[in-house]
Design a protein around this nucleic acid. Sequence first.
DNA 1: CGATTTGCCTAAAGTCTTTAGGTAACCCCA
DNA 2: TGGGGTTACCTAAAGACTTTAGGCAAATCG
Lengths: 190, 190
Amino acid sequence: MARAGLTPERLTRAGAELADETGFDQVTVSAVARRFDVKVASLYSHVRSSQDLRTRITLLALEELADRCADALAGRSGRDALTAFAHVYRDYAREHPGRYEAARARLTPEEAAASAGVRHARMTRAILRGYDLVEPEQTHAVRMLGSVFHGYVSLEAGGGFSHSAPDSDESWARVLDALDALLRHWPTAP
Amino acid sequence: MARAGLTPERLTRAGAELADETGFDQVTVSAVARRFDVKVASLYSHVRSSQDLRTRITLLALEELADRCADALAGRSGRDALTAFAHVYRDYAREHPGRYEAARARLTPEEAAASAGVRHARMTRAILRGYDLVEPEQTHAVRMLGSVFHGYVSLEAGGGFSHSAPDSDESWARVLDALDALLRHWPTAP
DNA sequence: CGATTTGCCTAAAGTCTTTAGGTAACCCCA
DNA sequence: TGGGGTTACCTAAAGACTTTAGGCAAATCG
């Protein structure tokens, strides 16, 4: 019988595709095996467990997203950087809902430290270089940016903003306007 | 043999407790049956399916959260209302992580329309009555508020802000300061 | 007090996870 | 070119969860 050419990378990629098609929680060792027309047990030479497979998908998604963000940020600053970054985020989530879901999955502290999550954190902070914020306000702002991006994208993915006026695209644009204005006039502690 | 006194409500409540203890994804018909010291099949007279059980937990969490928000909002307006609402959100998520996770689970459009989600939407909009925003900006602001609340709480729950200075409490307070300032000086479209 | 309804049970089939151990394909080097 | 070793996929099996079908006993009510 011809070999299928399984590797951890190919399994991860197939799992990511499956996630985008049917949801991250539907990603199962069995389903991936089916996709390769291979017996389930065969995957266990390449992936330690079902959880391991999911973690790999999470790490892949974080990498992909960080790569796109890095591209978008290159040569931009201030408001330009903010909106470019934001659009990458939202577009990725719409294009790859399962991967985006995977990217939000919990990692152990060690996994997180070794993941592209740290690039995300650095890039978010880089955006703020175009604004006039010093610590600790910069960190507060980083956290707020992350919250808005993740929160908006995730509520939108859950269908929160669909079928109601105004259009979600319009809200997203106005939310980014608001964020930009807020960062330019960040309030001092009252 | 004595009867266990199962009802959909008791099963839902037990499932919610289980979610808080071990995570929403660990909530299974089997686990709940174990908790009642009852055979698995017995639960199927009270809930239609595993998915049905989860949906009930989601609806319960949305109700509880909406009740707390309503209490917090009573007699408050403007900045007071904003921070009270926000604190309820964050406290609930920290106190009941599994329920909060459940509250963010996807519902069908029909389920969502019949859920306490609509109360949440109304209350978020009510907060904005203390600020000077007219449509469609009000809706944009509603969506931004929801995004910040959900995003922050969910990133915090994922461990995003732990083990790093400044304290998450402090960031939360400053994020709310920033939101209040933003709503008082909501930028016009550029 | 007997009939009916209700509530929990046993049984069984299907899916997914994971481990153990077997066999065939591939690779390399004599 | 043809063993010999390694690798890749397989069969088999056990354990957990989901779901349905049908049975028996407890509760309820006339």
